[in-house]
Write a protein that binds this DNA or RNA. Structure first.
Lengths: 233, 233
DNA sequence: CAGTGGTCTAGACCACGTG
DNA sequence: ACGTGGTCTAGACCACTGT
């Protein structure tokens, strides 16, 4: 006789997904419970549970205690964009990565920054303007602000060789962050730095980073013209 | 005596994450194995396993059989943007959603579309131009192309009342898709439709959707000026 | 080959939320 | 109140891969 290889939670995910796509279980309806499915597939409930948990994470079903598991009428599309380390992103294309510091100044935070970072008026900040090159082409302009109360060691860093991101990660790794992805028309300054005409549509990414509730740094990244992010669902 | 409530995999995630942030376990180094941690936390290995598996998914650690679990030097930043149903997105702001069909025509696919969708030259396609309003303000312009060989029923749909996305989801739910997020300067047509000045930087989202390897539809969405996506990490 | 993570089991108890 | 999913356990075997 042939041996039936034990069923995996991946097999279950696949089968269940097929039934959803088939309309075997209609959108909006309740599907069988875990015990029932475990019986059908001849496996433990824990195995079914894992499969269903992941399908819920993927946005295909909604699960509620007592109420059961319901097929979503409109699946939630979750696009995951990996924010790569810029050096990696550039070197992945085969180009050579180069970093350059354009400007560095100590100053009081401008109003918009205080609002963004929620820091008091007298907080000393370090403002850096950086360029990241792919070969000799400007790839990304980085507008960086560092809260010196939260990261006092930044005062002694000249940031000539090492970019602020790499340096900060060594000081305060794994912080919480909020990022916003948006778009702007290049002003004269940015257009000059990225070598595009004024008004060109550019992707921008803003990030505020906290460490234990203290806002450490604000960054606004301006990508080169034509930059895009792709994701498979 | 006080009862020690059983430790949860969430507690373990939290503790381990704290140690990573603390440099208790240095970036790049190997951390203790699952059995060891299970002993320390006084729980089953399965519980530790779940915690570690999720931390790996979140991009904090790398796990390999035999080699063990290693702290990532540069954590992978994964920004998850939920692509909302446009009606939901608009109604969530308290505005009223309205849909309007601008144009509808049957034609041969232009070259760029054939390239994007990988369909032969003689494939009949339906081209739709749609507008989505928040109250009376144009919120999003939708440039939609439907492969009529893959979705022949679209021929009989006038798309006057129901948007193509909602209609398609009812025909072919839960398909695979590839989305690209980019930015453009508004041309005269789009500027007119979205009521912005020509050249305004706009966020665009392109999506190609397949069902069982057949490309069904291509969409390019043009968001209103100032649209942004935010994500917490 | 040996060690580590990956998965499965059979059973148990718990927590939430619907009816 | 009670049914469903959420989680934990203790043990087992497997799969990958570094040595």
């Amino acid at each position: 006789m042939t041996v039936a290889p034990k069923i995996s939670y991946l097999d279950i995910k696949e089968i269940v997904l097929k039934r959803i796509k088939n309309f075997t279980w209609a959108p909006g309806s309740i599907m069988p419970g875990e015990i029932e499915l475990a019986t059908e597939f001849g496996c433990a409930r824990a195995t079914v549970n894992r499969a269903m948990r992941e399908l819920a994470e993927d946005g295909y079903i909604d699960r509620k205690r007592k109420a059961g598991t319901r097929i979503k009428s409109f699946p939630t599309r979750k696009a995951k964009f990996v924010i790569p380390i810029i050096r990696d992103e550039i070197e992945l294309t085969g180009a050579t990565y180069r970093y350059a510091l354009i400007n560095r100044e100590f100053r009081d935070p401008p109003d918009w920054l205080r609002t963004q970072m929620t820091i008091p008026q007298n907080t000393p900040v370090l403002h850096l303007m950086c360029l990241h090159y792919a070969d000799s082409k400007a790839f990304q302009y980085e507008d960086r602000w560092i809260n010196l109360n939260a990261a006092p060691k930044a005062v002694d860093q000249d940031f000539e060789e090492m970019g602020p991101n790499e340096w900060l990660i060594k000081q305060v790794p794994f912080s919480d962050a909020e990022i916003t992805f948006s778009t702007i028309n290049a002003d004269t300054q940015v257009a000059d730095l990225l070598n595009v005409t004024v008004g060109t549509a550019l992707v921008t990414l803003e990030r505020i980073t906290w460490f234990t509730n203290a806002p450490i740094t604000y960054t606004k990244l301006y990508f080169h013209a034509g930059y895009q992010m792709t994701s498979r669902l």
